[in-house]
Write a protein that binds this DNA or RNA. Sequence first.
DNA 1: TCACGTGATGTTATAATATAACAATATGTG
DNA 2: CACATATTGTTATATTATAACATCACGTGA
Lengths: 176, 176
Amino acid sequence: MNERSSKSLSGSLAFGSEHNHSLCIEEALDHAKRVCEEGGERFTNLRRQVFELVWAEHKPVKAYDLLSALASKRSGVAPATVYRTLDFLQAQGLVHRLESLNAYLGCSHPETDHQGHFLICENCEEVRELELGAFMQSIAAVEDAQDFRVRRMTIELFGLCKRCQAANSGPDPTLP
Amino acid sequence: MNERSSKSLSGSLAFGSEHNHSLCIEEALDHAKRVCEEGGERFTNLRRQVFELVWAEHKPVKAYDLLSALASKRSGVAPATVYRTLDFLQAQGLVHRLESLNAYLGCSHPETDHQGHFLICENCEEVRELELGAFMQSIAAVEDAQDFRVRRMTIELFGLCKRCQAANSGPDPTLP
DNA sequence: TCACGTGATGTTATAATATAACAATATGTG
DNA sequence: CACATATTGTTATATTATAACATCACGTGA
Ligand SMILES: [Zn+2]
Ligand SMILES: [Zn+2]
Ligand SMILES: [Zn+2]
Ligand SMILES: [Zn+2]
């Protein structure tokens, strides 16, 4: 817990690495606030609270879990509250939706305009957001070969992260 | 409607191409029957009916739409009927689920063991299943770089197919 | 043939996810 | 302050999916 934080958010951690998550959240909040200001949008209390809850862990969060957590912080919380706020955060590029999981995740590099690509560990549930690049070339090739123009995409790769590969060969041997 | 049908199912059509869909369905049914027999599974009436409904068009189908269509063909149809049957067909590799759409699609090359990769036209809804290859290289590179072992994946690329790119610049100008 | 075990289907109930529609409130601007 | 607009609250409902248990169908061996 004494890491160097450069221009990339601390949230862009590699699987299994330690990092200062308080700092990570703080940076993410600062960033979110700035993104909203620059876009002429308001980073209201509600939006900040939801954003914090999404960022509480580097794991996908379900809308109704957010709902419960949020309800313990403020009154008058209904599904629409959560979904609307998630929609807003997604529109600002601050949060991604994981289609295969019906879940949401804070974006780890919101400074760039991008679609999310994800590695999702089936054992520990940790999610790593890939930075663009690796796939862009093959996608360009597909567009070319198929006469298809890609406008958005869902790329979610499920498997085992380094730690969980090492830790086992079977399921969950009490992870850290 | 006079096409050549080689070893690849007629369902492996390119976007916008014409093809003999009766033949396409017939082939798909034959194939499904064979897959089940070889796996020691029964291709029952229910399973055949659901399979036919999924193959009715080269478009994703929603579970509850299948439910309605199926209910007009037999009695005692409930959600569980449909979901169970879809689960079975997916397990046999005959049908894929599109996570981003909560919808299902007949597999266009069930002879090979594979995950589905899809191009989905946002305008005409036609879906083209990519054959593996284009992505495998970049996925291997990601696995290597990230110390992550991929076991399954969701890859769904949304955009405009050739026909819809040509036809417009805006939305739906009454397609064929 | 028929008892039996298994897999398939039917049936009922409910869980989990998401949106619609409209009312009330907050915020900034002139 | 009056007004327009964005945000949030509130109620109801739509959509998607699963659980749990009952019944039926099919093959196998007594
Ligand atoms: Zn963190
Ligand atoms: Zn991102
Ligand atoms: Zn066809
Ligand atoms: Zn397929």
